[in-house]
Computed example of a mutant assay.
Amino acid sequence: MSSMRVFQVGLRRAAAPAFRGNAAGRMVQRRFAATNTISQDSAAELLNKQRRLRPVSPHLNIYQPQITWYASGLHRISGVILSGGLYLFGFAYLAAPALGWHMESTSLIAAVGAWPAWAKVSAKFGIAMPFFFHSLNGVRHLVQDFGIGFAKKTVMQTGWTVVGLTVAGSLYYSFIG
């Protein structure tokens, strides 16, 4: 039976007792709305009483934190950092001639070359960390999009592997050259 036919039959069955004086032998339940006029203060008090009696839904602090939570949040944050940095640099590069800034490669290399070693390493690490994490975690998500690696043990292993490779890759690229 088609869904339209089922709908029509249901409507007829629901309307039949009203038109035939309940001739079908079924009891029709009716609920009449009772309304009382109450003051604003009484209404507010009633509403507050109802709110106090509502069950409280559990909050995130009752759950044990998992690597998937952190990986998901950091994936989004690293994406925002990378894209935001790209946009900022792109806009600065486009506005540089009008503002008199020197954003040529030679100027940038000379400026960074004058920094102390700890500042260079920190800057490299600050750029490499979100890049590696976002790239590696993106590959992890692509693999999971194919339905691979959803066992609890595998999810934990791949999550911590991404974290370890991110730290190792960031440190490696921060200290070379």
Rank of each mutant, 00 (worst) to 15 (best):
L46S: 15
Q157C: 11
P97W: 15
F32I: 08
A95V: 04
L165W: 03
A128H: 15
G21C: 02
T161I: 10
V9I: 14
A110I: 07
K120L: 04
I67F: 00
L11A: 09
R26K: 04
G79P: 01
T154N: 01
Y173N: 04
Y172G: 00
M129H: 15
G164P: 04
A123S: 13
Y173R: 04
L74W: 07
T106Y: 13
V9F: 13
V9W: 09
R5T: 07
P55C: 05
I62M: 14
F19Y: 09
I109Q: 11
Q144G: 02
N48P: 03
L142T: 01
L74F: 13
I77Y: 12
A117T: 14
V28Q: 08
I62H: 08
G177H: 15
Q8S: 15
A14I: 02
V167K: 09
M4D: 04
T154A: 03
G79R: 01
S170T: 06
A114F: 12
S122E: 13
S83K: 05
V143H: 01
T161R: 12
F89N: 08
S57A: 11
V139G: 02
L99R: 06
H141V: 01
P130E: 06
Y173E: 03
F150D: 00
D145K: 01
L165F: 06
L108R: 09
A92G: 05
P17E: 07
G90L: 09
